[in-house]
Design a protein around this nucleic acid. Structure first.
Lengths: 115, 115
DNA sequence: ACTGTATATCCGCATAGGCGGATATGTGTC
DNA sequence: GACACATATCCGCCTATGCGGATATACAGT
């Protein structure tokens, strides 16, 4: 029960919804998210920890970089919620804008950077 | 965006999930919820306000009693979320237990009471 | 081992929001 | 309009958690 509430609580904040929105496109590392969301590193990292702890994200270290991606494991409820997010999150203006910024960023991003 | 976060925030608390779980069965008044959830009236009322304010519930006054029911209006996201809740909430032990208590309560409930 | 970069955690501060008793408001009855 | 009852709101208290700069930690390269 508390886990279920925790699952929803993780979705109850703008920055976290934007992060999930971006990760719908595929895995990203912290520095990517910093660039696209234009928020301090500590803020990004805190929200990523929160999402991972709630069971929404899996993190993987590759050298110096931490990559995060959506977890598609999890209970039935979580799976269905993820499907709903995948269906509707992009419709939110803020998320659509983030996607545009991500695309732009990926073009400019130097190969020397993470990934 | 903030509305979306608000929608999830309303689902991020045990008591509110239990209330929604009970309302899956149909509308109930505050006194019903007090009896089944065994919580103080102020607590129930506060959570009901929260849920209504977030767009999850509609309240209707009938004489002295306030009846609350799930709103099936709302955006696409909300509709799909409601479907997910309807599908999975009953699986939660606490919610199943509440349903059992509701059934029991409805048998005992005096016709003189609300409804 | 030293340095630089990436990430996580710590810190102090501010706000949101949980709790439940007390009080205010609304409504029907006499 | 006085009362009883149902519900909403207020209150003080306490915890969770948001923020972002500062600091600690992890890793790669020399």
């Amino acid at each position: 029960m508390q886990n279920t509430a925790k699952l929803f609580k993780a979705l109850s904040e703008d920055v976290r919804l934007r992060i999930l929105g971006l990760l719908l496109q595929g895995e990203l590392c912290v520095c990517d998210l910093m660039a696209v969301l234009d928020l301090p590193q500590s803020t990004i990292s805190r929200h990523l920890s929160y999402l991972a702890n709630a069971g929404w994200l899996a993190g993987e270290r590759r050298g110096v970089w931490m990559y995060y991606r959506l977890r598609d494991q999890g209970g039935n409820l979580q799976q269905d919620l993820l499907a709903v997010l995948g269906k509707h999150l992009r419709e939110l203006p803020a998320v659509a804008q983030d996607h545009a910024r991500l695309e732009q960023y990926l073009k400019i991003k130097k190969p020397s950077a993470c990934g």
